[in-house]
């Protein structure tokens, strides 16, 4: 019983604090306190997340599962960046050491001029930007292969997509100066109407769910156990 009732009770209390601070000045301090707790809990959950990634990948390596080499690379990355960004700065601060350097780069810290920053700029940034950049190629390939106008709705989507794609870039105006105007109309009328409907619908759904949590009726957030 306690496994369900206590979390429901806690969610209700926290929820009422959040609502209460909008209406009662005396509730604001409580609301602020709860939000600060939320920030701390979220930060702690990141540590938990990293620990979980390490555990899962250690298991993968130890069992020599498929692609275990990638898991090892991931663990090495976590170990190196964690050591440079977290362990060394703490040790450095504890021993009040001077400038710890390796190959001209600071060893303790994450700001510019450190080895951590160098690895971030020379490894993480290009890899991450490349992953995002590859999307252009896959979108082009998918557009050619999968974007088939089989129904009137698909035709409407295709025409709107082509107009917006061409109208959002300068070449659209060169082709025909009406394309940017059509693009603006699509964005400001049909797109806006649909997005606003979705937003208002989601907000009403959020209010209803929130109210159910505040009243202790909604229990799905506890999971199925």
């Amino acid at each position: 019983m306690l496994r369900r009732e206590i979390p429901i009770f806690l969610a209700m209390i926290v929820g009422w604090f959040m609502v209460g601070e909008f209406f009662f000045p005396w509730a604001e301090a409580g609301g602020t306190e709860v939000q600060q707790m939320a920030v701390i809990i979220t930060a702690a959950s990141v540590v938990l997340g990293v620990a979980n990634v390490i555990r899962i990948n250690l298991l993968k390596v130890s069992r020599r599962e498929k692609d275990w080499q990638y898991a090892m690379l991931l663990l090495a990355g976590i170990a190196l960046m964690g050591f440079l960004g977290t362990v060394l700065p703490v040790v450095h601060a504890a021993v009040h050491g001077g400038a710890w350097k390796l190959g001209g780069f600071g060893l303790a810290g994450i700001t510019s001029g450190t080895l951590f920053d160098r690895l971030y700029n020379r490894v993480y940034v290009p890899l991450s930007a490349t992953m995002y950049g590859l999307l252009a190629f896959y979108i082009a390939s998918a557009a050619f292969r999968a974007f088939r106008v089989r129904t009137p709705e698909a035709a409407l989507l295709a025409v709107a997509a082509i107009i917006v794609m061409i109208g959002r870039v300068p070449i659209g105006e060169k082709i025909w100066d009406g394309i940017p105007l059509l693009t603006d109309w699509i964005m400001n009328v049909p797109n806006l109407a649909a997005k606003r409907a979705i937003l208002i619908g989601a907000a009403l759904g959020g209010i209803a769910t929130g109210l159910k949590i505040l009243l202790g009726i909604e229990r799905n957030f506890l999971g199925s156990d």
Partner: peptide
């Protein structure tokens, strides 16, 4: 790039 993707959609269809 946008024009290429638009032409690819048309060509594919």
């Amino acid at each position: 790039a946008h024009v290429t993707i638009a032409l690819l959609i048309v060509l594919g269809n």
